[in-house]
Amino acid sequence: MHPYLEAVKHTWRLYKRNKVSVAGLILIIFFVAVGIFGPLIAPYNVFETSTDALSPPSMKHLMGTDDIGRDTFSGVMHGASISLMVGVISAFIALIVGILLGAVSGYYGGKVDEALMRIADFFVVIPTTLLLIVIAAIFGPKLLMTAFIIGVLSFRITARVVRAEFLSWKEREFVESARLSGMSEWRIMLMEVLPNIMPLVIASATLQVAASMVFEASISFLGLGDPEFQSLGYMLYRSQLIYIRAWWTAAFPGLMLFLGALGINVAGEGLNEALNPRLRGR
């Protein structure tokens, strides 16, 4: 059987053992389900106002309404998918940048490695939130821009994982054997080493999704969210003015966001744990 399938089966068995991680996985599935199907089952248009402003949860509005009569439940359904989209886009960007930089750094080592790591360190120092604020202030809040910037600024974690993996895998004899076969360095990196590294990288990227979601929520909460898209964070922002009178406008979006991030974090950690001991046992 293909090692990937074997590895997946084996990893799943290890993963299952940690009940907390499995709970996290359930949360993710729930959140993703909401993210995908939410907009379909939302009874009202997110932007649709009504005269039922600030009404508490009822049969008509399951999670109540906000100050201009918009349905909170629909907002949450919709917002979940927005937050998820941001998380996934930025994690994907972080993944690509991280893999590229980590691969070059780890594989070539030496001065190239040192130089790239210094650059990466520089990126850590940049206060992400502040930069996002500044950019939003200049260009106006744009969801995709936000997602993109979060991704670019977050590459370091993935890069670090990828670099460490490359550093360790490149010393193995099968890489030397590949050189003796006549393969070029690039092909060796891509076709021989990378497939062995992907599982851990994916685990790291999973955690990045949650981190990005929370980042975006923080920006929106500060008022720099994109009103066109109404993410969960944006809903929290709007609720600031009214939550004392209408707790549901903050509680439900907040809870949804919390569950999503929590689930991803817990599941991602569990995945890391499940993958790590197996990989470390060489």
Partner: peptide, 28 residues
């Protein structure tokens, strides 16, 4: 060419025997 000491380290765990042996043909 070279024969390595540790066969477990000298073979790519994610490649079939066929793929590993085919490598020199494809590369050269």
């Amino acid at each position: 060419q070279m024969v390595f000491q540790d066969p477990t380290a000298a073979l790519n765990p994610r490649k079939t025997i066929f793929d590993s042996l085919n490598r020199p043909f494809r590369a050269q």
